[in-house]
Simulated scan of single mutants.
Amino acid sequence: MSSSIILREHSLTFPRLLCSLTFLRYMGGGPRTFPGGLNKWQWKRLHEKKAREKEKRLLDQEKQLYQARIRSQIRPN
């Protein structure tokens, strides 16, 4: 009698355990990729390039403002 109860309890817990293990997914050990499938160095170079381009845009904008200010000072004289 007691062995049948133990078997019944065991048979109920085993599928639950098996079910929980099947949904457990370990992360793969492959290479770490960044968005777009880039590796670390491609990502780093891309962002360095974007930073250089942004700095260049800001300098060009500042240069245009400076030239406009110079032109506006020359006109009234």
Rank of each mutant, 00 (worst) to 15 (best):
residue 1 M to E: 14
residue 1 M to N: 10
residue 1 M to K: 13
residue 2 S to F: 10
residue 2 S to G: 14
residue 2 S to R: 14
residue 2 S to C: 02
residue 3 S to F: 07
residue 3 S to C: 03
residue 3 S to G: 09
residue 4 S to M: 15
residue 5 I to N: 07
residue 6 I to V: 07
residue 7 L to S: 13
residue 9 E to S: 13
residue 10 H to D: 00
residue 11 S to I: 03
residue 12 L to M: 08
residue 12 L to A: 09
residue 13 T to F: 08
residue 13 T to E: 09
residue 14 F to Y: 15
residue 14 F to I: 14
residue 15 P to A: 01
residue 16 R to F: 03
residue 16 R to S: 11
residue 17 L to H: 09
residue 17 L to W: 04
residue 17 L to Q: 09
residue 18 L to D: 03
residue 18 L to A: 15
residue 18 L to Q: 12
residue 18 L to C: 05
residue 19 C to V: 10
residue 22 T to A: 05
residue 22 T to W: 08
residue 22 T to K: 04
residue 22 T to F: 05
residue 23 F to N: 05
residue 24 L to D: 12
residue 24 L to Y: 15
residue 26 Y to W: 02
residue 26 Y to P: 01
residue 28 G to F: 09
residue 31 P to T: 12
residue 32 R to D: 08
residue 32 R to Q: 10
residue 32 R to M: 15
residue 32 R to L: 12
residue 33 T to E: 13
residue 33 T to Y: 14
residue 33 T to I: 11
residue 34 F to G: 00
residue 34 F to W: 12
residue 36 G to K: 02
residue 36 G to Y: 04
residue 37 G to E: 00
residue 37 G to R: 00
residue 37 G to N: 07
residue 37 G to Y: 04
residue 38 L to K: 11
residue 39 N to I: 00
residue 41 W to F: 10
residue 42 Q to L: 12
residue 43 W to G: 02
residue 43 W to Q: 03
residue 44 K to L: 08
residue 44 K to R: 06
residue 45 R to M: 09
residue 45 R to Q: 15
residue 47 H to Q: 14
residue 47 H to Y: 04
residue 48 E to S: 15
residue 50 K to D: 03
residue 51 A to N: 06
residue 51 A to E: 12
residue 51 A to H: 06
residue 51 A to D: 13
residue 52 R to L: 02
residue 54 K to R: 10
residue 54 K to A: 09
residue 54 K to S: 11
residue 55 E to P: 01
residue 56 K to M: 10
residue 56 K to L: 06
residue 57 R to L: 12
residue 58 L to Y: 00
residue 58 L to S: 06
residue 58 L to N: 02
residue 59 L to D: 07
residue 59 L to K: 12
residue 60 D to A: 05
residue 60 D to N: 14
residue 60 D to L: 03
residue 61 Q to K: 12
residue 61 Q to W: 01
residue 61 Q to D: 15
residue 62 E to G: 09
residue 64 Q to C: 07
residue 64 Q to S: 06
residue 65 L to N: 02
residue 67 Q to W: 02
residue 67 Q to E: 14
residue 68 A to M: 05
residue 69 R to M: 01
residue 69 R to L: 04
residue 70 I to Q: 07
residue 71 R to V: 02
residue 71 R to L: 05
residue 72 S to W: 00
residue 72 S to G: 05
residue 74 I to L: 11
residue 74 I to Y: 06
residue 74 I to W: 06
residue 77 N to F: 10
residue 77 N to H: 12
residue 77 N to P: 10
